[in-house]
Design a protein around this nucleic acid. Sequence first.
RNA 1: GCGAGAGUGGCGGAAUUGGUAGACGCACUGGUCUUAGGAACCAGCGCCUAGUGCAUGGGGGUUCGAGUCCCCCCUCUCGCACCA
Length: 834
Amino acid sequence: MSTTAEPDNTYDFKTIEANWQELWQREERYKVSEDDGREKYYVLEMFPYPSGRIHMGHVRNYSIGDVIARYKRLRGFNVLHPMGWDAFGLPAENAAQKNNTHPARWTYDNIDYMREQLRKLGLSYDWGREIATCNPAYYRWEQLLFLQMYEKGIVYQKNTTVNWCHSCQTVLANEQVINGTCWRCDEAVTPRQMNGWFFKITDYAEELLRDLDKLSGWPDKVVTMQRNWIGKSEGLSCDFKIEGSEELLSIFTTRPDTIFGVTFMSIAPEHPLVETLIKGSEQEQAIRDFIDAIITEKQQQKPDEEQEKKGIFTGRYCLNPFNGDKIPVYVANFVLMGYGTGAVMAVPAHDQRDFEFSRKYGLPVKQVVIPEGTTLSEGVMEAASIEPGLLTDSGTFNGMISTEAKQAIIDHATAQGFGAAHTTYRLRDWGISRQRYWGAPIPMIHCDTCGVQPVPVEQLPLVLPEDADSGQNTCSPLHQRESFITTTCPACGGPARRETDTMDTFVESSWYFVRYTCPRFTDAPIDRARASHWLPVDQYIGGVEHAILHLLYSRFFTKVLRDLGYIDIDEPFTNLLTQGMVIKDGAKMSKSKGNVVDPNDLINEYGADTVRLFSLFAAPPEKDLEWNAKGVEGAFRFLNRIYRYVMARRGLLTLSDGKIELRSEADQALHRKTHQTIQRVTLNIESNFHFNTAISGVMELFNTLTTLSPLDEDTTLDNVTPALIQEAVQTILLLLSPMVPHFCAELWQQIGSSCSIDQAKWPELDIEAAKEEELTLVIQVNGKVRSRLQVAVDIDDDVIKEMALKDENIQKLIQGKPVKKVIVVQKKLVNIVV
RNA sequence: GCGAGAGUGGCGGAAUUGGUAGACGCACUGGUCUUAGGAACCAGCGCCUAGUGCAUGGGGGUUCGAGUCCCCCCUCUCGCACCA
């Protein structure tokens, strides 16, 4: 009986973790292949950008994924759990310039360092499948896919106004513009005319929207965000004749039922017809100045700021095809060229923006829809009436309700040939051209005689030039490198120029999860058989910041790859877990806030298992996790307690024959708690990955164990049979092993188990053993707890009633009052109503 | 403005179908052992005016019984935002 620590009983996490990591690596313990009888399970965490070092967000993300991978293995699944690097991107160029090195060098150095960091966390990856997207062995296939998409018409080139980030010197996709600023550097984004390559994601808009219904394993929030982003609207597209011109002004509306209420027309300042409309007008110059002013103002507009509605009359009219009304055409600052047709039929009575505009410029308000229970009120309106109702002043459509009128009006326009039913989406095509060096080159060639020509397939990969031309920087964009640009036309053999744009890095991350299934395949981008075996990803884990960009693009690519015949699934990720952020002092960890915790320091001080345990215990995975240094110590203490306990009992556990015989009440109590814990932990993991409650369950079991068999006592005085202690200890180690793998592997070995713990089986629940024989029944009077009763589980309701009414405390309370009703809830409580 | 989510002790967080509110941990308080303790162990720990009183953002309702269901309101977080 000694309280001084034996050297043996000190939890030496450094040695333990190093030993097991070395073993796992040497034996390639987590390598998987398809020729395996077990059912497959594909768990994936969003791969990192190799920024230099991992941060707590990575630790959390990968710990969650690793618990799931290890848990599923113990449940008998053949688990694919890969890791790689989203390795192209701007920071590499900046760093390369700063340190006078090459982006590739910087990137691969970072990868080497971060891979080692991940290894030190004990993450169970199949490292044989590692991918770095900047490797030509990866992006050559992306270039091939690009060419095949081009052939199918999913890739096209156009000259448009693009979002230009001056600080990053490149174009941004719509999804990458946040509140009018660059998603990466927060610089204001400016419009710019440019030729660029686009993916026709809008061709898939309807399917991307429809298949959201299949994503029952995704958080509602993400599904809703995608639905809103795609932004489907159905309505009428309709042509208005311009008076004194052959031109037609085309509009889109979701409220065709209000078309008789049109009193003016608003068009975007950038609308192509503006020039035709104002040409030759007396006010031509004044109007042009006004429009220029609006455009400038728009560009300088701050996010979140709604501008005052303003506009100017063009001097021209168009004709409402439904009633022949002559309608003035205005240029208005609130009309967006990028949505619908860039022209809006204005119905001030039924649209708030049009209403405000009409008030400002004294334009008439004509009410044509009267909501149920109201009367015509166009003279006294203070805001637009947007409710549906009965049509009035609408010719042959009078008396119809909005819903039927919409269809009738569309039908009429269709029959007359000046309109049609139309669906429009907020989603734009995905512009993928980037004027950067560190990206996958777009494999196209421009020839003056033959036009745009694809790079011949046999010439892939079209690799990034490693060395700069003389006088150039190592990461100068391709358009500054003559030696790269100059080529010959594959069609005519004449001199030609290479495309110098590289692809948006989101292209790489849109299909990496497919390539993981066959990362070294050299015949094609994807090995159909292997992809078909592993896909879809059963569980995907990552930050909610990718809810739109990456997750929408990946869904799009999945459908494209399916249509190209590579894969046979419609959706890539069956279940999605969006983990919360790691925050400290109420804010996201960031260098600028100075509240960063470096995982390296923590691993050195407490070991990877403690860091994993705390990050899993402190909050459920989908919620933000508040960092708490004291909490980490608590997790460390918990592991130390288990370590000391198991090491002290080691001899006893090794000798035990493991035969379960319940010889005492303590035996029974421990056995019961053990199986209740198995049940609870399994449920916590299976239902929603709530590892925090799973861990607290194991803590309870350990508390029960040490209460029944305290460590400080002489073990011969234990009133628990060794076999029961052994069962409890084995259970604790197995249940914790997905979360703290080195720790459990070590102790599992110390207690003389015949196999390694990650090759063991998840403990089996004995449902009978978990059942309580006696329980505490609560006795309530009028819904308030007034007493408690110890009873056998299978006791009769009538007996319970009797006992409850006889109870001393209860007797006092109900004295003299008539008992109205007695409610007995099985195994829970008795409520006496007086 | 629209959409989604969340409000529970000093803190992080628990609470199957409505059925003992506060599991588990952190912090804190007292104690044991100690040369010492920032180790380990034991005990306590929602609040108060201490009543079989009050408590799950506030107010109503349904019910024998509400953190949980319904209605109204407040606050916070996130996403979208002049989308015709």
